[in-house]
């Protein structure tokens, strides 16, 4: 049996993460049905809106508390990517534009891009060879 604390954490992550998913779908519907934006573009606008608010709330200083409360519920969605980026660049701001912000903005989010690209390349080749694309 998992400890009650872990059960509580898992429930929090499930509910918060699920809610972010619902917000995402809600935004897509607003963009496609009310603003007549094509679906593919609507998906991208949805990501941009989530990234914007996660970054803004991080910069304003209170998103850190949300993240340490909801943990995976906010880390696994795209909000976590934006939070990682903005908090890293803010943290190193005092070290300057190049050695501070420039060198550290991808500190945490960089590994997502690195392993995403390498994995997509390898699996892409596999799929290309198996199915021709």
């Amino acid at each position: 049996m998992p400890k009650p604390g872990k059960m509580y954490n898992a429930m929090k992550a499930f509910i918060v993460g699920g809610s972010v998913g619902v917000i995402g779908q809600l935004l897509i519907d607003v963009f496609t049905k009310w603003l007549d934006i094509p679906e593919k573009e609507a998906n991208t606008y949805m990501i941009i809106v989530l990234v914007f608010f996660a970054s803004l709330f991080t910069a304003m200083g209170f998103f850190d508390n949300f993240v340490s409360w909801a943990r995976a519920g906010l880390i696994v969605p795209i909000t976590g990517f934006a939070h990682a980026m903005t908090s890293a660049s803010l943290e190193y701001k005092r070290e300057g534009l190049i050695t501070g912000i420039g060198s550290n903005i991808f500190k945490i989010s960089g590994s997502v891009i690195l392993y995403g690209v390498v994995a997509a390349y390898v699996f892409g080749i596999i799929r290309y060879l198996l199915f021709g694309g």
Binding site: K6, A10, A13, I15, G18, A72, V76, I108, S111, V112
Partner: peptide, 24 residues
């Protein structure tokens, strides 16, 4: 979305992996 986050949280709580590991 909830299910994916739930799995992420279970990994965080039961292993030494960090959020960086989980997202990667």
């Amino acid at each position: 979305a909830g299910f994916v986050c739930l799995i992420g949280q279970i990994i965080l709580d039961n292993t030494k992996l960090t959020p960086g590991h989980v997202t990667s």
